[in-house]
Design a protein around this nucleic acid. Structure first.
Lengths: 337, 337
DNA sequence: AACTCCTACGTCAACGTTGACGTATCCGGC
DNA sequence: GCCGGATACGTCAACGTTGACGTAGGAGTT
């Protein structure tokens, strides 16, 4: 900047005015400064700028997610990034892999870079580090789980209701032995979906068979093991409600290996790419991922802009997409031994 | 920092020493500073720190990609991020959507935030903005295309060789009418894969039927249209080589809709989730995405650490994964009218 | 002619941090 | 008792930028 000022024979302050398009710079000087900046390849330093500016904005938000290789996380990041970019805001992204220590470190890292706000899509377990950051004044949106502390927005989907509806739809087809396969119970979404499952059974007067419930299936491998175990029961389930996308995939692999994919009904929570190309195509509860991402970005950017209205808990509705696998009628299969 | 210093009754310089673990601070003072920092909720400001430090490192790299909703991009970002995080480096991510203007703006944005290096996974078209940034001294790695300017590393996969091998494998089964469906020709990978296709045909002495070649299929929808057109030919292809993952998916949709998915052979370039669960499972050329990402991160982080060895063009080998769809023998199908 | 007001600049200090360098204190050796 | 050297601090300025404020000159008003 000093070099630009020297070349254009003005003060650095005038360069600053020209670069930021502020009034108080004459036409001829403006041209000189622009030309000098170009020839020197000058790029303003936003970090120095935000250090000095009164609002201290870095025009950067942090996004914490669990695992980018999950299409759900990727799509969400994409939606947040899209919306942020339109506001001139960039995204510092980091995955936590559900590791508590990692999450703390990442949080410190983002905090040290003075992000204007945080979008947190992966808060398993304790939220004390998050709470601390929130109390320091960083606006924050939690995605897929409500905050355990005050003053914080969150965006979730209709986990419980959609799970209940999925189960009721299976029951309407005559299913009575519906298995539940869920992700870690520490996740709020898992709990909600399980509650919806239980509510669905209860509302239809179907008894809950606890041996059909498998939780803490983190990743497709554990889901495969659990599915195999279900199929070995004396009275195997005629339908599966798989409460997370990787769990769905694991279950499908086992059903396919046993050639049961056309006989056992499956409804999965979370859509996934190619679900429509499988045989049968997979019926899923589809979350409005772009909608969730957009809402999260909107909320957090509004907070950055000084919105101090009471915290919001936005609920973005999910929809049951009937593709075939959830419309298979009950068919008593023999135990897999 | 001033508050911490005041509370601990030391100078800010001493606080700096304690926070950074530098020698020259006594045990008792260290404890006092730590305690003060904790009670005040002090977080160092990395942006101010890197402004003043001699090395000017922000411990942040920028990653430009095209579309996060493509699992290839997502997996690559994930691999880069993993590796970077292990070095205490965070990732500023932005998608360009193959929009030239957007790419320029994003580049400026990252430059203004003084990223230490760039990983560019999406450089279609002109690279002048990239070149300019490179000339300003920012280390840079291009993924999936060689640089048009000097002094820059890149990481690619065996596009041409693997494409040729895929085609030869189809020819070995007796296929003579092999269609090529490719992404935009402006992409280097597309050109390479097409060249590999041509080489494969030539090496086996099979004539190239130009009406079987469709390029510039950006996205699954265009691929569907092209596939439908191929099936209307008087002599339709008995095998498809789909040179990008979304193209593969589009082609599969059409084959499935026509119930030809068990009669027309398909080999796709780029693996995609669930390719193994389809019927038939899809034979693909699988790139070593984690390997590419790791290599890119390694290269760029080494440059940040001052590695000035000559620029590297790393080639990470891809592998043909035979799953079934590529092992279908030629079967003359009648034109689809 | 003296005044106000506006425009187009410049000067100075400060944002939070650290490199360079200074100073006070203490310890061991002779 | 004095000196050399290490150790534990502090002081000052600077990184690139901008807010607050100052000033010079011209236009308009009375």
């Amino acid at each position: 900047m000093r070099d630009v000022a020297a070349l254009a024979k003005v003060s650095t302050k005038t360069v600053s005015r020209v670069i930021n398009g502020l009034p108080g710079a004459g036409a001829e000087v403006t041209d000189r400064v622009r030309a000098a900046a170009r020839t020197l390849g000058y790029r303003p330093d936003l970090t120095a700028s935000s250090l000095r500016r009164s609002d201290r904005r870095s025009a950067t938000i942090g996004v914490l997610f669990e695992d980018l290789s999950n299409p759900f996380d990727a799509a969400l990041l994409r939606a947040v990034e899209d919306h942020a970019r339109r506001h001139g805001v960039l995204v510092l992204a980091g995955s936590t892999e559900d590791d508590h220590t990692l999450q703390r470190e990442l949080l410190f890292s983002l905090s040290a870079r003075r992000v204007d706000a945080l979008v947190v899509m992966a808060a398993g377990g304790h939220q004390d580090a998050l709470q601390h950051e929130r109390e320091r004044g960083t606006p924050m949106v939690l995605v897929d789980r409500p905050p355990t502390f005050g003053g914080t927005d969150c965006v979730t989907t209709t986990n419980r209701d959609s799970a209940r509806d999925a189960v009721l739809s299976l029951i309407a087809l005559g299913h009575r032995d519906i298995a539940f396969l869920g992700d870690r119970r520490t996740l709020w979404t898992s709990q909600e979906r399980y509650t919806g499952y239980v509510e669905g059974l209860a509302r239809a007067g179907v008894a809950l068979r606890t041996e059909l419930v498998h939780t803490d299936l983190h990743g497709a491998d554990l889901a495969e093991t659990a599915t195999a175990a279900l199929l070995r029961l004396d009275r195997p389930p005629t339908a599966l409600f798989t409460a997370q996308n990787l769990v769905t995939v694991g279950a499908l692999r086992v059903l396919r290996a046993r050639d049961l994919h056309r006989r056992v009904a499956v409804i999965g929570f979370d859509d996934f790419p190619l679900a429509d190309l499988l045989d049968p195509a997979i019926t899923v509860v589809r979350q409005d991922v772009p909608g969730i991402g957009r809402k999260a970005a909107e909320l957090v950017l509004a907070r950055v802009d000084g919105d101090t209205s009471p915290p919001v808990h936005a609920v973005v509705p999910a929809a049951l997409i009937r593709r075939g696998s959830g419309e298979i009628s009950p068919d008593r299969i023999s135990p897999d031994r």
